[in-house]
Design a protein around this nucleic acid. Structure first.
Lengths: 310, 310
DNA sequence: CGAATTAAGTTGCATCATGCAACTTAATAC
DNA sequence: GTATTAAGTTGCATGATGCAACTTAATTCG
């Protein structure tokens, strides 16, 4: 159960937010338009939308939307074009509406920028993440999120983040604790100084400068021309969006380019999504045995992928 | 400058939030009261407030507040008692108003709890932190935050978090990179298995289950009955709130209880807030010399605190 | 094919929160 | 002792909103 104090904080912050954003009556976003009209324009800007959809998205009654739209049409901010179904009208911005909306965007962006001006980038990232999480939780819907970038090589905070991502997942799903976390720290502190070597590589996936996934090829520790796939992890909030696949693709491409004779990885039973990815890339289960070395009993698995001749 | 995508995310989340919280017209929080009245009741519950103050806090014109208050009085939800200045009336809840507000609180808390139900505790903490940061940034004011708890001993994700907190700070303020991060990981992976030993201890400060500070006494690595104060770090968002002092107090109390002959710590010049804390606890600068071992030149400092006889 | 039903959007109507401006009453300044 | 300022109220106009009834078009079903 969530800490009541946390709930209180969330509520207090929500109230303050709503007031500061100018929702307690009056005009809005530096225009003479009511809040609902501003929201409507932004939705219409997103493309192809009807009055009904607007009503759903804005949580307004269809009659209110109808009237609001007529005002916007009257002000020459939007146009209605009949669809194939003669009952529905598709909405779009006029040039003048686009100009007006651009001004609104400028105003609102400036408002946000001014607010976060004195904050650390990490704090701004926390704001974006926290707001997005909460809005999505309330709306039970997804918000378009910032694009994901991929990088190769060490980044500041990478060791911390890889360990953190592992613990977020494995503490809960496998019951691993200090032994596992310590092993991660030891393994990474051994690898990072070697990360630049020709046969090694480490990749990260990042969104808004936050690391949300990582994968490593250690080409040295197993010897015998065997590549070792290590520390493959994706943020729990980001799973299922193809980040894991993209990272694994990069690792496998590197292995093939380097011409390793095979690739090995250790995991354990129950991580089905990962296993699917491994098998799609030609990994096959080689060994399986129970183990407790990391503080909880799991069925350890070794996967092997043989070199695919070019 | 903040990433435009981040600004966009913040704005999109804000819009969604406002809609989902029921601010686009209509009733509110499961009552027949308008949003402004609900906000007013919550403010009045906070104690001693006048119409003028309400007007400022809710960003409403005084006439609107005046009318709203008369309705609340009419509904027997609040009372007005004349102050010493006969022009002002102090507002307070009636019993019936307190009941109604309690119902509102129940409704709203349930709404929040339901929303965050499926999330990880860390995600809920991010929500609280992000919303509070943003609301405070917009309003230029402080919000009461969740209480801070202190724990002794390992916690899941502790190694990751200590490294992460260090990198957040030292990457920016000292230019440290992979060498420093790797050293942290190595040091911690050496210490954590020894954390339970009698002469060692590690403390964390947590808010909403998120680690926001830590400190360690390593009673073994320096030998000669010397305590080593290590990994003293506080989250940048939390600095200045006494968390650092509280952690250091615990460490020093442990050292004294264990009867170490002295305590040593390594830091470097420029960390003035920390130095103040050290000196307040009897640490004195012992050595100072330039060093580049962590990837950037700093003036390394060694502080020593002699045992204070009981 | 034709009637019944459903869907998208509009209009009549009443409500009510809001801001501006003018006002009342009390405290303070000079 | 008068002028000014402050807290709150009232007149008035505006306008956003929801409900209910309506129009028009598409779909379903016999």
């Amino acid at each position: 159960m969530t800490d009541p104090q946390t709930i209180t904080t969330i509520r207090a912050a929500s109230r303050l937010l709503v007031r500061e954003l100018g929702f307690m009556g009056g005009d809005f976003a530096g225009t003479d338009l009511p809040p609902s009209a501003v929201h409507a324009l932004i939705e219409i800007e997103g493309g192809e939308i009807t009055a009904k959809e607007l009503s759903q998205r804005l949580h307004l009654e269809k009659s209110s939307v109808s009237r609001m739209l007529r005002k916007l049409v009257g002000a020459n901010l939007i146009m209605e074009t009949p669809g194939t179904d003669a009952r529905v009208k598709t909405l779009s911005l006029t040039d003048s509406g686009a100009d007006r909306l651009a001004a609104i965007h400028r105003f609102a962006s400036t408002q946000v920028k001014t607010a976060v001006q004195g904050l650390q980038p990490a704090q701004t990232a926390t704001i974006a993440e926290g707001l997005a999480l909460y809005a999505q939780a309330l709306a039970q819907t997804d918000l378009p999120s910032a694009p994901i970038h991929y990088h190769c090589g060490y980044q500041s905070g990478l060791v911390a983040r890889i360990i953190g991502l592992h613990m977020d997942f494995y503490a809960k799903h496998a019951g691993f604790g200090d032994v596992f976390e310590t092993a991660l720290a030891r393994g990474l502190s051994d690898f990072i100084p070697r990360a630049q070597n020709t046969r090694n590589a480490i990749w990260t996936a990042q969104r808004s400068d936050k690391i949300i996934g990582s994968i490593t090829i250690d080409g040295e520790d197993l010897g015998h021309d065997i590549a070792h796939l290590r520390w493959f992890i994706v943020d729990q909030n980001t799973r299922g969006s193809g980040v894991g696949r993209a990272l694994l693709d990069k690792a496998v491409a590197f292995v093939d380019a380097q011409g390793f004779c095979e690739t090995q990885l250790w995991t354990f039973k129950g991580l089905d999504a990962a296993r699917t990815l491994y098998e799609a890339q030609g990994f096959k289960l080689a060994d399986e045995q129970p183990g407790t070395q990391w503080g909880a009993e799991v069925l350890e698995q070794r996967f092997v992928r043989k070199h695919i001749a070019a």
